[in-house]
């Protein structure tokens, strides 16, 4: 049995879909669906799983040994808002909760794959290497990144990373991110802006070495993330911290252009001034170093930005059912 915490979230539900594609349905989802108005429950509606457990009940069930036969825990559950101001909540939710899950996995020899974050790299002044020796030198810019780094450091110190895999996700986009409000990807935002106004707004550059819209990010399609996680499930010997990006930085302008192209339209991009409060924290370049994952044996090609955006827009955002769904029935049923 596999457990996915945050299984109704963006990457968690995409991972459930990936496991369903491989015929795996003996999966327990752990999450907190919140208000029905977010529509987060829809992430699960076309997917198959054995049971759903509320997030707050799960640690106690683990400690009491009420769940038997757990072969792996994919721990994606976290408060992923980089603008969250309640530091204690982030500590308890992202750090404390993760420690309990890790302790269970180590005691019961269960595979642990957990979500760290590229936010741990801060402004990138120490680079974007997932080399484990550099964990202590990173300086996240927000509390979310710090809560993730705290767990990475704890996991390293207690030997958890000798068996578990921590994934530093870069800029992930793709279906099932719709409940994330402000934290949705630029593709999602651009798709709706194009629908409403025919144009896309991007931030101006406030640095002379970058043109407007040429700020660079490592954008990765969610299917590439789940492909990596599925591979890691089959390779328990692969452990440590890993970047999850493509290794290629692309601009926001490229992303917006790809969205226009997927809709069969010519790009119309307006550049707006960046809010003063963001200017000193804003990153102009992030790019994952991917050598470690490749040397561990992962050799699939990453989806190009153009192909990923095209699929996301045409097969999901513009479709009547925008959710990942492999629970459709054939007419044989």
């Amino acid at each position: 049995m596999v457990i996915i915490t945050g299984g109704a979230g963006f990457i968690g539900s995409a991972m459930l879909w990936e496991l369903n594609r491989n015929g795996e349905e003996n999966i327990i989802i752990v999450d907190d669906l919140g208000s029905t108005t977010t529509g987060q429950w829809r992430n699960l509606s076309g997917l198959r799983f054995a049971d759903f457990i509320a997030k707050n009940l799960f640690p106690d069930l683990l400690e009491r040994g009420a769940l038997e036969g757990i072969s792996a825990i994919i721990h994606m559950g976290a408060n992923s808002s980089t603008t969250e101001t309640d530091a204690d909540h982030l500590l308890s939710n992202n750090f404390g909760y993760s420690k309990k899950i890790a302790a269970y996995c180590m005691a019961h020899d269960a595979r642990l794959i957990y979500a760290s974050s590229a936010a741990t790299y801060g402004d990138g002044q120490n680079g974007y290497s997932d080399n484990i020796d550099g964990v202590d030198t990173l300086r996240p810019l927000n509390m979310y990144g710090y809560s993730k780094q705290l767990f990475d450091r704890w996991a390293l110190k207690h030997g958890v990373l000798d068996k578990a895999s921590g994934l530093k996700f870069f800029n992930v986009y793709g279906p099932n991110e719709y409940h994330k409000d402000d934290m949705t990807s630029v593709v999602f935002k651009a798709f709706h802006q194009i629908g409403e106004k025919g144009t896309v707004q991007l931030f101006q550059s406030h640095r002379p070495d970058y043109l407007d819209g040429e700020q660079l990010r490592d954008f990765i399609y969610v299917r590439d993330c789940t492909s990596i996680m599925a591979w890691m499930l089959e390779k328990p010997e692969v452990s440590g911290l890993f970047n999850v990006g493509t290794g290629t930085a692309r601009s926001f302008k490229d992303l917006a252009t790809a969205t226009f192209s997927a809709l069969g339209r010519q790009p119309e991009i307006n550049y707006i001034p960046m809010p003063e409060t963001l200017r000193d924290k804003y990153q102009y370049y992030t790019c994952a170093e991917m050598a470690k994952l490749h040397s561990a044996g992962y050799n699939k090609t990453f989806t190009s930005l153009e192909k990923g955006v095209k699929e996301y827009v045409q097969h999901y955002l513009a479709a009547s059912n925008p959710y990942l769904d492999n629970g459709k029935k054939t007419s044989h049923a």
Partner: peptide, 10 residues
């Protein structure tokens, strides 16, 4: 196929 139906088939 597997994107839409997973491993389900008759």
């Amino acid at each position: 196929y597997v994107d839409q139906f997973g491993q389900y088939t008759d």
